[in-house]
Each structure stands twice: as C-alpha cells, then as structure tokens.
Design a protein around this nucleic acid. Structure first.
Length: 267
DNA sequence: ATGCCGCCAGTTTGGCGA
C-alpha cells in the first residue's frame, strides 16, 4: 500500500483551521503530525477534521506548544508525553511543568511520534539545557521502535538545523541556538538508535528549508531553515518513494511560518 | 508576485517563537 505521511508546525490550529482543512483536501495525507497547536486538547477541532475522514489524537494545554496525530488509516495505541519526559522549570515557577510536546500513535502499518522539541531560546538559558535533556529523553523513548521491524519515524519540529547547509547563512546564527554542536549531537544520538534523517526535496531553490521567519521578507528572499525533520528507522526509510517540502503552503496571508513536509511510502 | 511578524491570554502589552 502507498502511505503519505506529513509533518507541519501549524502555529495555532485554531487560527489556521481554514488552511489546515484546505491542505488536507488538496495534499490528502494519510497521516499528519501537527505541532504548535496552541490550544487545549478539548479545543482541538476534531469534528472538522473528522468530516474529512481523519481520526485525531491531540495533546495540548492552551497557549503554547501542543501536538497531534491525524490519521485516516487507523489510530491506535496513542501515547501522550515521552516516558520520563523532563519538565521545564520557568523562572517564576515552583515546580517543573511537563509540556505537551510529544504524542505517538500507530496508523495502519506505521508508528509515529509527533514532536515539538523545545526551542532553547539562548545558549546560556535554562531552556537550552531543557532542550538537550528533552532530546535525551526522546532518544531513550524511541530505542525499541527504532531497532524494530515495524516502519517507525519521529516527525516534527526539532528546532535544530542538522547541518550548516540547513540554514540560509551560517554567519547569521553565530552564537545562537539551533546550530550548536551540543544540539547537533542530540541528533547524532538519535541516529545511533537506528534512525536516519530522511531529507526532503526542495520544490524551488536548492535547499529544502521548512521554516521562514514572518519578518523581513524572509520567505520571498528564501532566508530559511530546515528544522522540521523526519527521523526514520530502516523499514520506514527503505519504503520512502518521495519526500518534499510543500512551500506552496507558506505563500500568502494567514499561513504558518513553517511549511509541511510530505513523505510518500510504498509499504 | 512569495512582499516587510503573528499568535495567545489578558496588566489590550508582553511572552514566545527561531
């Protein structure tokens, strides 16, 4: 069977609902991993996507973060949060808070995690250490599935550009997060579990960026980053027939600042 | 034209994103 899986940081699923429904109808993914829902689980537009044939497993708590898996080929064994997922201790908080940044589901022949990795903010910030800890928990969480025979992938917004080629200008990121050696080392650790970076095609220009800032004409100037990634085990990666960034979805008003990444499989 | 930041909760300004 052919299976189309996609991942999209949608930057508010409620603000983006018309765009989401339009994209589901045109791209027709079988499975869609969403990040940055920016709504509570109960506020997720489950009925609207159900009308298009999608079951959904959302995990959100309101203003920030939030992830979901949508599927029209089955949705089973849903897991919310990573095992031993670290929480974030904000400056004014007494206790760390485990944020809704990961949800897993089995969709027909494939198991996926939809992840929204912490941003990190600044290299000397507590959020950066939280990011590295979070990635360590992700590595531990995927070990068994990564080594298994079932097609498996972690898809989402990793907030790390894997190589120097994955940002428009390395000099612009001097001293900033997303390109540091420790962040990239967390991706290498993920690869050591048996997962590999499935790099999409760019539909225009030479690099498959997935994010362009809203400001300063970043998209028209193609000043982007590739931070929305697919880490797949061998059975998944071997079945990939095509993968690309749907930059059309970034055009115009009312869009997310991220574009969907589409992965086609023949299983 | 792809076009100069947008989302949210709410101290309707500031935190957050990357």
């Amino acid at each position: 069977m052919t299976v189309r899986i996609a991942t999209w940081n949608i930057n508010s699923v409620t603000a983006r609902l018309p765009k989401l429904l339009e994209w589901l109808e045109s791209a027709k993914p079988d499975v869609l991993c969403l990040q940055e829902l920016k709504c509570a689980t109960d506020a997720f537009p489950a009925e609207a996507v159900a009308e298009l044939g999608y079951a959904s497993a959302a995990h959100g708590d309101g203003r920030w973060n939030g992830v979901a898996v949508l599927s029209r080929i089955g949705l089973e064994d849903v897991v919310r949060d990573l095992p031993d997922q670290p929480g974030y201790l904000a400056d004014d908080a007494l206790l760390p808070v485990v944020e809704p940044r990961a949800v897993a589901a089995t969709c027909g022949p494939v198991r996926v995690w939809s992840v929204y990795v912490p941003n990190g903010r600044e290299v000397d910030h507590a959020h950066y250490r939280y990011k590295l800890e979070w990635m360590a928990a992700l590595r531990d969480a995927v070990r068994e599935d990564a080594a298994g025979e079932r097609p498996f992938a972690v898809l989402g917004d990793f907030n790390v550009a894997p190589t120097d080629e994955d940002v428009f200008d390395l000099a612009a990121f001097e001293g900033l997060t997303h390109v540091t050696a420790p962040e990239r080392a967390t991706l290498a650790a993920l690869q050591e579990t048996g997962l590999r970076d499935v790099v999409p095609r760019a539909l225009k220009y030479d690099r498959p960026y997935t994010f362009w800032d809203y400001r300063a004409l970043a998209f028209p100037k193609n000043r982007g980053m590739r931070i929305d990634l697919t880490y797949a085990n061998k059975p998944f990666a071997d079945a990939v027939t095509d993968t690309y960034v749907d930059r059309e979805a970034r055009k115009g008003k009312g869009t997310s600042d991220h574009a969907p990444v589409v992965v086609d499989l023949d299983l």
